[in-house]
């Protein structure tokens, strides 16, 4: 996300918002997984209205960043991949959301 607005530019919170959760799809994935204990790839795809490729890329980035844990199972002989938020992921999300809230408070 490119931020150029002088209204919000230069704020400390803005800097702290840079990182993996800077992208709205990755932020939405983490928020969904904070609310629900686990979600399958198909369910995330349905809720986020993303393509397989795009969602897969975002999930891989979050997994590599230590935000997500993966569990594979089978349903009707078809593989199902389940995603859960890790404890470090949950704490980073909490930080990100509180910085976001502070930023919104300051901008109004």
């Amino acid at each position: 996300m490119q931020r150029t607005d002088p209204e919000v530019g230069g704020l400390e919170e803005l800097e702290s918002l840079k990182g993996l959760l800077d992208h709205r799809v990755r932020l939405a994935i983490c928020i969904l997984l904070a609310e629900h204990d686990a979600m399958s790839f198909s369910r995330l795809k349905q809720v986020l209205e993303e393509t397989d490729g795009s969602l897969g890329t975002h999930l891989r980035k979050l997994e590599d960043g230590g935000y997500l844990a993966i569990e594979k199972s089978f349903r009707d002989r078809r593989p199902v991949t389940w995603y859960e938020l890790t404890e470090p992921g949950r704490s980073k999300l909490r930080n990100h959301v509180s910085n976001l809230a502070r930023l919104i408070d300051r901008v109004g």
Partner: peptide
Amino acid sequence: MTDAKLLKDDLAYVRAAAERS
């Protein structure tokens, strides 16, 4: 698009996804 508008759009997207779930 300004930063404030981008931020608003992002939050609206996250909110819509949360409602769908």
